[in-house]
Every structure is written in C-alpha cells, then in structure tokens.
C-alpha cells in the first residue's frame, strides 16, 4: 500500500517536471513552445470531458459546445467588455459553464446513447447560433479583433502576448489550477459518489444518492472546466472559431480521452499530446492526416482497450 503510494507520487512528480521543462526539451526534439501550449489546452479540455466520461460514466458527445462557448466568451469579453486576460477567462468559463448547467437540467434523465444523442443535438444548436449570428460572432469567419493582454501585477508586468515561453507558463499555471481542482473533487466524498454512479447506478440509488442531481453537478462542473479550457484556447489563437463548437470537435475530445485512457486521470492529456503532435507533424505532410490519427485510434481501441496510459500502467504492474 505504501510502496504503491510512493510510486504514485514519483509518477506525479515526473509528470509535472516534464510539463515544467517543456519549453526546454520541446525545441531540441523538433517541437516548439506553442505546440506544448496547444497540448496543455486541448489536454485540459479532454480531461474535463473525461471528468464526466471516465469518472461518472456519462458520455457527452457535444462537449465542444462548452469549449467553443468558452472561447467566444473570452473573445467577446476582450473585444467588447474589458481588456483583461483574467476577466476574459472568467467570461469564457461562465458562458460555457452556465449554458452547460442550464442544458444539463434538461438532459440528466437520459442515459447512454440517448444522452450522447441529445448532447450532440444541443451542441449543434450552439454551433449554428455561432455560425449564423455574424454581427456578434463573426459567423463563418470566426471572431477576430481581440488579443490576450499582458498581465499587470502593479509592480511588474508579464508579457504573455509576445513571449511564447511566458505564455506557456501562464497556461500551465491555469492548467494546474483546473487539474488540481478536478483531482481534489475526485478524491472527495462527492467524487466518490460520481464513481459509484459509474460503477452501478442502481446500487447508488439504493444507497440514497439522488443520481440525477449528482450527474447534473458532475456535468455542470465538467462544463465549467470545459469553458475554462475554451477560454484559454481563444487566448492561444487570439481567435474563436465556430468549428470549435462543432460535434466533430466533440468527437476529437472523446477520441483523445479514449485513446489516452479514460479510466485514468492523466490519460486524456497523453491522448491529447499524441493527437496534437500527430496533427502538427502529419498535416505538414498530407491533408489526409486524420486517416492516420483514425487508424491509430482504431488500433488503440482494439489492442489497448484501457488506452495508452492504461496499457503503460498494466505492463508496469
């Protein structure tokens, strides 16, 4: 039991060291810092989805909606409301999270395929709103004309706009906050009721857990995390794209989570890293890069049903 705990601590330390040093080892390996930033943001999104999928056992196939709303929330805040990066993130998180919370009340009674279908449908509603409402969202062209702002701490300023490394560390800080919150919740009594619902809904009900209410809370939390990730994504690109709300984007997130390992906390980050790096590398060679990612996905699902990280853990044990 104790050896198990210390091994977990070592793995955790290793993950954070790798993330902290990313700007230094990415370049020699042929990468660049902005790629690492993308991995972090999309990884956070995949982990937010997995908060619901892997730990409550509820598959949402429309989670890109909250991600995209987060991006628009951040962009619109910067463009029309306040020239402040923290407020932009807050705006994105609130837009994604509150819309998710509202929608959640309508869908928590559905299960399985029906839940997935309803989330796709509602996700597409938000996609078409963003697509059609050109005067506000820029329509098909996306939302432009905003940029992340330097962080002003009074005594000193952090230039996250032009310095890629500084921005990476800012994103890593945000990532750490969100991931820390997720980990904290999952270790709490509430987090354990989520796992209980995943494991056996009927038993959970007969232990006195109001299952629908707990799924709604987990769904809402997941939407807030998703909006947070989406807001960061808008800051990465200084741009918000309606395709960020599209169900194919939702599919990408599910793919990252499943490929990395949806039963593990860190799996989706690994999945996102593989996905983003492959996309970056292959898309410079062929326009059909998605076929290769798809092929890899099929292989992982066939041969490592617990995902890449699940496989690594299994072979170590």
């Amino acid at each position: 039991m104790n050896a198990d705990n210390s091994r977990k601590l070592i793995v955790l330390a290793a993950i954070w060291i790798v993330l902290l040093l990313a700007p230094y080892w990415m370049a020699p390996l042929g990468g660049y810092t902005a790629l690492a930033t993308r991995v972090l943001v999309l990884g956070l999104a995949a982990m937010s989805l997995n908060f619901l999928l892997g730990f409550t056992g509820v598959l949402s196939f429309g989670h890109a909606a909250w991600f995209g709303l987060g991006a628009y929330g951040a962009g619109l805040t910067l463009k029309y409301l306040a020239l402040s990066t923290p407020l932009a993130i807050l705006g994105g998180m609130l837009l994604g999270g509150l819309c998710g919370a509202l929608l959640g009340t309508l869908i928590v009674r559905r299960r399985g395929v029906y839940f997935a279908m309803v989330t796709i449908a509602f996700g597409q509603v938000f996609y078409y709103v963003a697509f059609q409402w050109s005067s506000l969202t820029g329509g098909d062209d996306g939302l432009r004309g905003f940029a992340r702002q330097p962080l002003d701490f009074g005594v000193f300023k952090l230039d996250i706009l032009t310095n890629a490394d500084t921005f990476y560390y800012f994103v890593l800080f945000c990532f750490a906050l969100a991931v820390g919150a997720m980990g904290f919740i999952l270790r709490s009594p509430f987090g354990r009721t989520m796992i209980a619902i995943r494991e056996n809904e009927r038993r959970s009900r007969f232990l006195g857990i109001p299952v629908e209410r707990h799924i709604w809370i987990a769904f809402t939390l997941s939407c807030f995390f998703m909006g947070f990730a989406g807001a960061l994504y808008a800051l990465v690109n200084n741009f918000a794209d309606p395709r960020g709300l599209h169900y194919s984007q939702s599919g990408d997130f599910v793919m990252m989570a499943v490929m990395g390992g949806m039963r593990s906390f860190w799996g989706p980050l690994l999945g996102a890293a593989v996905f983003v790096v492959l996309q970056d590398y292959l898309s410079s060679i062929t326009v059909n890069w998605m076929s290769f990612v798809g092929l890899l996905f099929v292989l992982v699902v066939l041969f490592f049903p617990r995902g890449l990280l699940g496989f690594l853990q299994r072979s170590k044990a």
Binding site: P189, T193, I217
Partner: peptide, 17 residues
C-alpha cells in the same frame, strides 16, 4: 462500504472531508 457510510453520514455533496 465507505461510499455507503459517507452517504449515510450526509457527506455525499461535500467536496472535502
């Protein structure tokens, strides 16, 4: 059994213990 106890003790919505 811990899940059952925590629910019975009224901790089910608590994000900490």
């Amino acid at each position: 059994v811990r899940i059952a106890v925590e629910v019975a003790d009224g901790y089910r919505l608590r994000p900490w213990i």
